[in-house]
Design a protein around this nucleic acid. Structure first.
Lengths: 118, 118
DNA sequence: CTAACATATGATCATCTGTTCATATGTTAT
DNA sequence: ATAACATATGAACAGATGATCATATGTTAG
């Protein structure tokens, strides 16, 4: 592979600090997972689905109707949300109800909302 | 435009609840902004930059060296982070130092980390 | 079993994204 | 003014993403 390290001729931060930063960085893998998680929040359809589920569990077809998005699109997005463990579901006959997996979802979205509102 | 509303033959949630959910939804515009914000967190290079800035302000070239990413790529990403008001910068001679704009960044990333760690 | 409904899934396609490369801009020292 | 360094920016291209369409799967009623 090619060498990408570019180094300032003079380092602008103390070498000890650089070392410290490196040590304090989480594993690359965790950082990757973290980015993947936020990617899931980074789509307005998915954000809207999550907001709907803030209030109540709901079936696919009601979510689709409420958000005016096709059943297929909602189903695909629910799959993404489920894989990210942000929602879970339960089946009741023909109907599948989705609900928030835990309260991190509210916390994360809440913090995001604080930021854009300030 | 085409009609996308698909409605369940029988509604599975109470109509009052549906109405309530609609009322409680933030403006479409805010939801869009929120998704845009999370999109910014949804890239591992940008997440890594933010983590570096957790510890200390840092110049572009030190960030690039630390993360082993080209100066150009870092600069492009810092621009994205700045536009999202997640980082700010100050110039000192030839050097431009970037630093976290506020503590929402830590809070949001912290919540995300909690989620993936559980 | 069959029809009808609810949901899931695979393929396709247009659009968006992140990196690279080349180059421009800004700053300092000589 | 000029060279050298630090950063920013625009074009271009490969890879990712989200909606649509067609269809498959799962479930219940008759």
């Amino acid at each position: 592979m090619n060498e990408k390290v570019e180094r300032c001729l003079e380092q602008h931060v103390h070498p000890e600090l650089l070392a410290h930063v490196k040590l304090d960085m989480p594993d690359v893998e965790d950082l990757y997972d973290l980015a993947e998680l936020f990617k899931v929040f980074g789509d307005s359809t998915r954000i809207r689905i999550l907001y709907v589920l803030f209030e109540s569990e709901m079936c696919v077809c009601d979510i689709a109707a409420l958000l005016n998005v096709s059943q297929s699109a909602i189903s695909h997005q629910l799959r993404v949300l489920k894989q990210a463990r942000l929602v879970r579901n339960r089946r009741d006959g023909k109907t599948v109800y989705y609900f928030l997996a835990d309260d991190h979802v509210r916390a994360i979205i809440g913090q995001g909302m604080d930021h854009i509102k300030e």
